[in-house]
Design a protein around this nucleic acid. Sequence first.
RNA 1: GGCCCCUUAGCUCAAUUGGCAGAGCAAUUGACUCUUAAUCAAUAGGUUGAAGGUUCGAUUCCUUCAGGGGUCACCA
Length: 490
Amino acid sequence: MEEQFVVRQEKLKKLEALGVAPYPYRYEVSHRFAEVIAAHKERDAEQLQRDAAAVRVAGRVVAIRSMGKSVFMHLFDGSDRLQVYVRKDGVGERDWAVTGLLDIGDIVGAAGTVFKTRTGELSVLVQELTFLAKSFHPLPEKWHGLQDKEVRFRQRYLDMIVNPDATEVFRKRSRLIQAVRRFFHERGYVEVETPMMHPIPGGASARPFVTHHNALDIDLYLRVAPELYLKRLLVGGMEKVFEINRNFRNEGISLMHNPEFTMIEFYELYRDFSDYMDLSETLLLELAGELLPDAVLRWQDKEIPLRPPFRRVKYMDAIAEKSGLALEALWDEAAMRAHIAKALPNEPMPPTYGKMLDLLFSHYVEDGLVEPTFVTYFPKAISPLSKVSRLDERETERFELYIAGMEIANGFSELNDPLEQRRRFEAQARDRERGDDEAQRIDGGFLTALEHGMAPAAGEGIGIDRLVMLFAGAASIKDVILFPLLRPKE
RNA sequence: GGCCCCUUAGCUCAAUUGGCAGAGCAAUUGACUCUUAAUCAAUAGGUUGAAGGUUCGAUUCCUUCAGGGGUCACCA
């Protein structure tokens, strides 16, 4: 609001008139609030008075209670709150004048001694108050915090100042990614960075974002997946490799989808999809050990135990069971078409057989996969990069891990036969001609790499944002992405 | 993109059937040297998201637009 902005600018001028530097360069902090609290919370008022431990702390003023010649304030350091107490006769004349000019939102340093108030709250009796930065805007209300989701996402810093839980989610995210990295480093994986801009988008079925490089005068696509580049590294002999980075998909936004999202992809030579299902279980349990009190995900109103081995169900069996369709019908395009026309009359008829399968899977199966479940042996038609099953040539050695109705991971025995890979790409090209504009494109450079010989390998991708949702109990992907995509305002 | 819902003071929310736009917090002024949702007294703060329409009269009803949320589709 205009008026408050003006008033606060006037206060800044008054500070300068007192000889206070309004934007000093540094402040020597001796303890974070959590350290002060941990060190002294168990001691009683008498002990604290005897010792008079000296601290220098800093934070944002989030509450002011003035008693006239003494002022209580709560400071917030990004994680914790700490009360400080300024008395007129306890600080210098100038510091007292500064205290009177403070607004909620200002940032200050406080040097003094730790004590306990009459009501037992650990506080700092201030001897020296240092002004560190001015806030010209009022903070959201103290009781209810900031409710407006739009403001929370557009001005995430306000969310973080007022709703400490928001920050906690992102600390968890950081710890989770750190734990994932350590997991793979401990197993001898090499972390790499492959291009974010691809001349041919590949590695996943999705619409890409397009951009243009001026000097080369070529269109480039923001990557939808790093897969085809990571496999080139397998050809090069990198035995274990992973990448944690952003993917970009030009698709809709929902509780589970943001156009840019973080993914880990990892690959290991001489392994197959079965090894990677085991590895996924190990990883999730290790993350639970790191982030949860026990191996139980608490998400929304659900309790989801992580108890290996996770349930395993074949993709086609899952659809057959939930739809009531016979397995033979699922393998027959005409029968599928008839079923969809009759049972799902409001759905537009998918252009390809693979899209029909997708439709039935998401309609009948997906939401019901709450407990951790590996869906296995995806049909060849929708798995252009995975190896054919040893058991049934219509299927592939591919799995997806579902938890809480969300797809969390996707892995397979990597197709390494270049002639077969070329045929799969050609089948995708035919799907594209039939109207599936997410069908994968032929990447000649990738085929050439395979032609040089790639050892058998397993590969997998895990959606990090969704994993954070599960481990932090977040209902929306927007709650685990600091700045989710919103339509720009004005 | 389709459908449904929301948008009122800086923030959180009210406003009876269409009849004078309010409260708490925040802010301003004053009192107060252990408060913590501090307290007490006073003051100020509004183009009710925007533009039209109906009406004597619109926060309220209608249309269009903008932003957001939910949902469906696509996707992870």
